[in-house]
Amino acid sequence: MEREETRADWARASLPRHRIRRDYIMEDGYAAFERLNTEAELRSVFVVEFVAADGSLESGIDGGGLFKEFMILVCRAALSPEYGLFAACSDQTVYPFTNSAVLHKNAPQLYRFLGKVIGKAIYEQMLLEHQFNRAFLNRMLERFGDAEESCQLMRLILQKPER
C-alpha cells in the first residue's frame, strides 16, 4: 500500500529508468541492482527501458510488463547451467555450482546480485521459470514462504557477505 502512488502510469514518469541491453542482460542487470542497497530501494518500483543493438530505445512503456520480461530474462540467463553459476539435477531443479568461481572470478558478487533479483521476484510475487532443488531451498530459505518472510529474506540478502 505504501507504493500505491508509484504504481500509477503518471507517477512512473518521474522514477529512475534502468536501461538494459538484451545482449548484455547480466551485465546491465548487475549494474542496475548494484545501486539498490537498502530494503526501501529493493521494494521500490523498478522501471526498465530496453536498448536495441543500435543503441536506440525499444518502443514500449514499462507498466510492469517490461520489468517482468527483464526479470525472466535475467533469471533465465543466470540460472542456466551453461552460465556456470548453477548446475541442474536430473529433475531439472537447480543448485549452486560448486566450481562457479573457476568460471566467474566475481561469483560471490553474482550470487549476491541474483539473490537481490530473486528477493525482488518474491516480493513482487512473480513466478520464475527455474526451480531450485528442494534441499538447497530448505537450507537457504529455512522454509520462508509468505510476503513478510520474503522481506526477511531480502534483509538477509542485503547483509554484506563475511570474508
Rank of each mutant, 00 (worst) to 15 (best):
Y83C: 14
L158V: 00
R139N: 10
N99I: 07
A87F: 10
A87Y: 12
E4C: 08
F97K: 15
R3Y: 13
R17H: 02
G29E: 02
V51F: 00
R21V: 06
A13M: 07
R19F: 14
Q131E: 13
N106R: 06
H130W: 15
R12N: 10
G29T: 01
P16Q: 11
G63R: 15
D23G: 15
W10N: 09
L158N: 04
L66N: 06
D28S: 07
Y24N: 09
Y30W: 06
Y95M: 12
V102F: 07
Y83N: 11
F50K: 06
I25S: 07
T38D: 09
R19W: 04
R17P: 00
R7L: 15
R76V: 10
V45T: 11
G29F: 00
N37Y: 04
R112D: 10
E2C: 07
G84I: 04
G145P: 00
E162K: 13
G63T: 12
V51Y: 03
F67V: 03
A32P: 05
T93W: 02
A77W: 01
F97D: 13
L153W: 09
Y111V: 06
S90G: 09
Q152P: 01
S80P: 05
A53S: 14
D91L: 12
P108H: 03
L114M: 15
W10S: 11
F113N: 04
R143G: 01
P81V: 07
L141I: 12
L103F: 12
R155D: 10
G145Y: 11
D62H: 09
S90I: 05
C75W: 00
Y123M: 07
F97I: 08
L15E: 11
A135L: 15
L66M: 14
A87T: 11
Y95S: 06
G60W: 01
N138K: 14
T98F: 13
E2F: 04
R163A: 09
E82R: 10
Q131L: 10
E4P: 00
H130C: 09
L36Q: 07
E149Y: 04
Y123Q: 03
F136R: 02
T98D: 08
H18C: 14
L158R: 10
F97Q: 12
I61C: 01
D9S: 05
S14C: 08
H18D: 02
D54M: 05
P16K: 08
S56W: 07
S100E: 08
L103H: 07
V48G: 03
D9H: 10
H104D: 08
R21H: 15
F50R: 02
S90H: 11
P81N: 11
E39Q: 04
A52L: 15
Q159Y: 10
D54T: 14
F113K: 03
N106S: 11
A107W: 02
K68V: 13
L114S: 10
E2K: 14
F70R: 04
G84H: 04
G63Q: 15
S150Q: 05
M154E: 04
P16S: 10
